[in-house]
């Protein structure tokens, strides 16, 4: 953690010395592509298909953002694969334009590491998975257990806090990636594996006999995951934020990948949709984007709900429920500010 801070500090100093890099949008347009930081591989969120294309929930956001800027994502977005440790220096140094890598929005990352979180695209929480044979029914019974934990993440700190608060001991088994964790956990190297609940679902789905393992009921932390950009370029942050909001608003209004072209042409009486698609007023000029930005962003992979269902939803191997990630109108907490 200290080395991370040191690097971030170097970054801050260097960007001060270099006069800052203000207009990210201009840079992106000049180089002709969006450089997007993503995971090195996390089921449902970032993975390659058989043809070597990156796909996933986090990748879909990169594509939407690239489409908003360039009209379409194909050929206009490149990916940098980042680990838990390299993600923040990569963003701070300007190697990437936006980080969309299941990153938890926290106070110190926002302030101390000098990043701007543009919203939340998945509300997660940290949980535990244990073998049924361990005979544990609650996380409070894990006293003395060895726990596999990914380094350089918030889960590491949450785990320490949770065990301290409940006066329990544990033996951490530090690991780097989810794939590694699955191996160690299955080999019995640790009694429990802890990560975000979405990750646990993915992990459990990959087991040969998922029935032999149980996800404990306790969720010990809030993990709002979302895309983020560097401090110091609010215009770019606004673009990143409103692309995400546009995807959520589109779900609210039933605008889908299939009907977005038609809806964008004549949105009828819906004033908000008209404003978003540039049929009313010239809101796109405020973002310095083409008039069709919202249409293009939605056309890429569909609205928020479509992206969710395609990569991590009920019909995928992950099989995640919408839960709190449903729209506010459907019992969730997903709520985009009005487009006005």
């Amino acid at each position: 953690m200290r080395s991370l801070k040191f690097i971030a500090l170097c970054a801050a100093l260097a960007s001060l010395a270099g006069g800052g890099n203000a207009a990210t949008l201009d840079d992106v347009q000049a180089k002709g592509h969006l450089q997007c930081g993503i995971n090195t591989g996390l089921a449902g969120f970032a993975f390659t298909d058989a043809r070597g294309n990156w796909q996933g929930f986090d990748v879909a956001y990169c594509e939407a953002l690239a489409a908003a800027v360039f009209g379409k994502a194909k050929g206009n977005v490149k990916y940098t694969n980042l680990t838990g440790k390299t993600r923040f220096p990569a963003l701070a140094s300007g190697e990437i334009d936006v980080l969309s890598r299941n990153t938890t929005w926290t106070y110190s990352r926002d302030t101390d590491l000098k990043q701007t979180f543009v919203g939340v695209n998945y509300y997660d929480g940290q949980g535990f998975i244990v073998p049924k044979s361990l005979g544990v029914g609650s996380a409070l019974e894990l006293n003395g257990a060895s726990v596999c934990i990914q380094t350089g993440t918030t889960t590491e700190l949450n785990l320490a806090g949770y065990f301290r608060d409940n006066n329990m001991d544990y033996e951490p088994v530090p690991i780097e990636t989810n794939a590694e964790a699955i191996k160690l956990y299955q080999a019995g190297r640790c009694d429990a594996y802890t990560t975000d609940a979405s990750g646990l679902a993915a992990t459990k789905a990959a087991f040969d006999s998922p029935g032999d393992h149980v996800v404990l009921p306790e969720i010990i932390s809030k993990e709002p995951l979302g895309p983020l950009v560097r401090h110091g370029d609010d215009e770019w942050a606004d673009i990143a934020r409103w692309v995400l909001n546009a995807l959520i608003i589109a779900e609210e209004k039933g605008i889908t990948k299939r009907n977005v072209k038609r809806m964008a042409r004549r949105s009828g009486d819906d004033a908000e949709a008209n404003r978003m698609f540039g049929n009313e007023g010239s809101f796109h000029e405020m973002l310095r984007l083409p008039k069709t930005w919202a249409r293009d962003a939605i056309a890429e992979n569909g609205n928020y709900g479509e992206i969710f269902e395609k990569y991590i939803g009920r019909n995928t191997d992950l099989g995640l429920e919408r839960g709190v990630n449903a729209l506010w109108t459907q019992g969730g907490i997903l709520y985009a500010p009005p487009f006005r």
Binding site: N39, T40, G41, L42, A43, G44, F45, A46, F47, T48, D49, W54, G56, T80, N81, L82, T83, K85, T86, A90, T177, N178, A179, I182, Q186, A202, A205, A206, F207, D208, T316, D317, L318
Partner: peptide
Amino acid sequence: VIVGLADPLGISRATLADSKWQG
């Protein structure tokens, strides 16, 4: 692989993240 280049280990991470081939 730690600087984000896709050497065989990097490719393996991406492959294993595909839920088709996980684990």
